[in-house]
């Protein structure tokens, strides 16, 4: 499964467009990380716990998108976009969407 945020794949021909596929996940971290993060908020700098959390969730969102694409018989997802929104304090929704296509 090819995942790319370009609209075309150089040197490859798109046989069929299969429409939009998407994947999303809402995650929150445990209290310990939250407390650590609030300390870090005092000194500034990277909040590793959050970085990891968001990275993992984004991967999960992409995987869900891939699964959806596979289910409708696509072998590539093009023009992928990401979007993040904080739903409540400490919880974030990670959303990935793209166009499922069949390429040669």
């Amino acid at each position: 499964m090819i995942v790319s945020n370009m609209e075309i794949i150089p040197g490859k021909h798109i046989k069929e467009h299969l429409g939009l596929v998407q994947g999303s996940t809402v995650r929150t971290k445990h209290v310990g990380r939250d407390i650590l993060a609030s300390f870090k908020n005092l000194f500034g700098g990277e909040l590793r716990g959050y970085t990891e959390l968001l990275h993992e969730s984004r991967e999960e969102a992409v995987n869900r998108m891939k699964r959806q694409a596979q289910a409708i018989g696509a072998n590539a997802v093009l023009n992928v976009r990401f979007s993040t929104s904080s739903v409540t304090h400490g919880a974030a929704e990670l959303f990935a969407y793209g166009t499922a296509v069949k390429i040669e």
Binding site: S4, N5, P10, N41, L42, G45, L47, H55, V80
Partner: peptide, 23 residues
């Protein structure tokens, strides 16, 4: 890509960081 070129399969790469401002 500006010039069509022979290339391997493209791969999506991401990089992210959460950073906080100090007090």
């Amino acid at each position: 890509p500006p010039a069509p070129q022979l290339a391997d399969d493209p791969i999506l790469v991401t990089g992210s960081v959460v950073i906080s401002v100090d007090y």
